[in-house]
Nucleic acid binder design. Structure first.
Length: 652
DNA sequence: AGCACGCCGACT
DNA sequence: GTCGGCGTGCTC
């Protein structure tokens, strides 16, 4: 017996190994083999009796699974995804299939199970639910739910899932990475109980395998998870729901650089399943697709029940470096809200104390020695690089001129936490950011404390913006709305717009009306006007106009070719060679492709790697693919690496 | 991805 | 004359 295997390396095609005598092996099982001198995991795609003539086969070292953990559908999907993203099927499979060896460990839900709650859809929700079911029966598989924050998309997802599960089908419910701390897990658990599995990166490999198998066998019919849950196997896939579909965390940031949203459409094509995207701020691409008819658009006209959208006030405010972070308007509304027993959320989208440490004499900024990034002051933890994690002590004198006038500029959540604890002495204040979460299970603890009303003011980074549903929050303060708006990236406005709309939407979700105070250095900026007016469409139109002018998505497709390495000269030499290779291919093949660069990437150095990139733009996906396939052999040699990013999320 | 093979420069 | 840089190709 022989087996054709995919190995988790960027190699094309499968490799044939001998099955040990007396061993049973089925396609879909994982094995361990010696591949060019290394013991490696491999994936069985085919078992047969024909011995290869041209080479001598090696024998499989060991078989991991008695029963298959994937089938033909996942093999086909991994081939499609590999070819779209310039990866290999084995690499996709090693990402898709859990790495655990023995399925074990029930996943303990970190929350209490309440009795199953019946959901009553309101008029809007019921209308949209019926619409989707009708269109689904008529053969429309692709849908976009567009509803303001708090309009109750979740209930529609749940009812759709229930409809499909009752008909013996399975449902995958994707959430952004950040929502691990959100309440969606307990909410679904309360509806579906043991029919639900949870699948995200912070459960152990063996737990992942356990959940994978439950879903594979149909013992659980609904799976909620992050990006990689899009690959879960089941007997009959009914739908993939992509909540907060605009979110960047659906895009994988290392090879294979897939976008789970796109994978959902591949699966839909192969398995005839529904795809339901949903957002209060749909990505420009998705709304554009809906307008051109590729997706069915379903609009909620208002918030769920009696709650109204919060009133947004844009306040021109300059914190004047640490003198004051709060405008009098924000202070006023905050105090009033807490006095009335309500809760307040402040967003400050920057961690740490200060993003810059510099010398007042010569202006020298302390940078990470491995990245082209200023180091962030984190109080007693010293200096921290937010890109590579490098830590360093705060220098007592300037590294350059020896002056002892070291100043810290700008402000992050930790510094502002100190400030507001002083400003509101009797408030119970909680900080939520990556640094505070690391310490303890603060996310779960936070949700409980917020629900019990033991927190008056929650301050945090973008983590506070997503997935929380606290009915007593009536005031949201956005402390420095400008942060991130001017990043050199074509999606910068879109990211800030959706972040600010999301956080604004945390306010006034219950009976009481909500208010948002948006503090900015430039209240004239159109993005803030759109947010104030809850006017997604004007934002969208303006953004489309810009994208059209610059031929960015959705008017083109992008590929980013990034060359990186420790030796900058060789990086530049390689990227230049790449460019001339592209030019000559584009010239001879007459491909309709715009080539930008090479240029140093905005983050010109990360973790000792210098980064230079070339951007390809085209309407023609096939020509893009052919061009990249042709030039990728100019890949890194030695310690120079070429990263190919199809449909990049950012260009930083 | 990792590794062996193989071809041209500056050196004990 | 060799050591060693890195470009090329292979791995069942």
């Amino acid at each position: 017996m022989f087996a054709d295997l995919y190995v988790p390396f960027p190699v094309n095609g499968s490799f044939t190994y001998g099955v040990p005598a007396g061993k049973e092996l089925l396609p879909g099982c994982r094995v361990v083999v010696d591949f060019s001198g290394r013991q490696t995991l491999a994936f069985t795609v085919n078992v047969h009796e024909s011995e290869p003539k041209e080479y001598k086969v090696k024998e499989i070292t060991s078989v991991i699974d008695d029963e298959p953990v994937f089938d033909r559908r996942l093999i086909k999907l991994s081939e499609e995804i590999a070819s779209y993203y310039f990866s290999s099927p084995g690499e996709v499979l090693s990402l898709a299939v859990p790495s655990g060896r023995k399925p074990s460990g029930r996943y303990r839900v970190p929350f209490e199970k309440s009795e199953k709650r019946n959901i009553n859809l309101d008029h809007d929700q019921a209308r949209i639910y019926e619409e989707i079911i009708d269109q689904y029966k008529a053969g429309s598989l692709h849908h976009l739910l567009f509803g303001v924050t708090g309009s109750g998309k979740t209930e529609v997802y749940i009812e759709l899932a229930r409809y499909l599960i009752e008909r013996g089908r399975s449902v995958i419910y994707l959430v952004p990475e950040i929502s691990i701390s959100s309440q969606i897990f307990s909410r679904l658990y309360n509806v579906f109980g043991d029919e639900l599995i949870i699948y995200h990166s912070s459960i152990t490999p063996n737990q992942r395998l356990h959940s994978w198998n439950k879903f594979l066998k149909g013992e659980a019919r609904i799976a909620v998870g992050t990006r990689s849950a899009v690959f879960l196997q089941c007997p009959d896939l009914g739908a993939i729901i992509v909540d907060e579909e605009h979110d960047g965390s659906y895009k994988e940031n290392s090879s294979p650089r897939y976008n789970a949203r796109r994978v959902a459409f591949y699966r839909s094509k192969n398995e005839k399943s529904l795809v339901v995207l949903g957002s209060a701020t749909p990505s420009v691409e998705s709304l554009y697709a809906a307008e051109s008819g590729a997706l069915k658009l379903h609009r909620f006209t208002k918030r769920f029940g009696s709650s109204k959208l919060p009133e947004v006030e844009v306040v021109e405010f300059n914190p004047g470096d640490g003198k004051d972070y709060l405008s009098s308007t924000l202070k006023l509304f905050t105090k009033r809200a807490v006095d009335e027993g309500n809760q307040v959320i402040y967003l400050l989208n920057r961690r740490g104390f200060s993003p810059f440490v510099l010398c007042n004499q010569c202006g020298h900024v302390v940078e990470c020695p491995h990245c082209s990034i200023s180091m962030n002051f984190h109080g007693s933890a010293g200096l921290l690089c937010h890109y590579c994690g490098m830590k360093k002590k705060l220098p007592e004198v300037c590294e350059k001129c020896g002056s002892d006038e070291i100043v810290k500029l700008g402000s992050g959540t930790q510094r502002v936490e100190d400030y507001i604890k002083n400003a509101y002495r009797d408030f119970r204040i909680f900080r939520l950011d990556r640094d505070s979460v690391k310490k303890k299970n603060s996310a779960g603890e936070l949700v409980e404390k917020m629900n019990r009303g033991e927190i008056d003011l929650l301050l945090g980074t973008q983590m506070v913006a997503k997935g929380f549903d606290f009915p007593n929050v009536t005031v949201v303060g956005i402390l420095m709305a400008d942060i991130g708006l001017h990043l050199p990236d074509f999606r910068a406005s879109e990211r800030i717009f959706s972040l600010l709309v999301q956080v604004a939407g945390r306010s006034g979700r219950g009976e009481k009306p909500g208010r948002v105070i948006l503090q900015t250095l430039n209240s004239e900026h159109p993005v803030f006007r759109y947010i104030r007016d809850h006017d997604y469409y004007s934002f969208y139109r303006a953004e489309l106009e810009e994208r059209k002018l610059l031929k960015y998505p959705p008017y083109s497709r992008l590929v980013r070719l990034l060359v990186r390495g420790h030796d900058e000269e060789r990086v530049i030499e390689t990227v230049n060679r790449l460019r001339s290779e592209i030019d000559s291919f584009v010239r001879t093949s007459k491909a309709d492709i715009t080539v930008l660069g090479p240029a140093s990437a905005p983050l010109s150095k990360i973790a000792k790697n210098y980064r230079h990139h070339i951007i390809l733009k085209s309407k023609n996906t096939e020509e893009l693919h052919r061009t990249v396939a042709e030039v990728r052999k100019i890949s890194g040699t030695g310690k120079i690496y070429l990263e190919i990013d199809m449909d990049p999320y950012d260009l930083l």
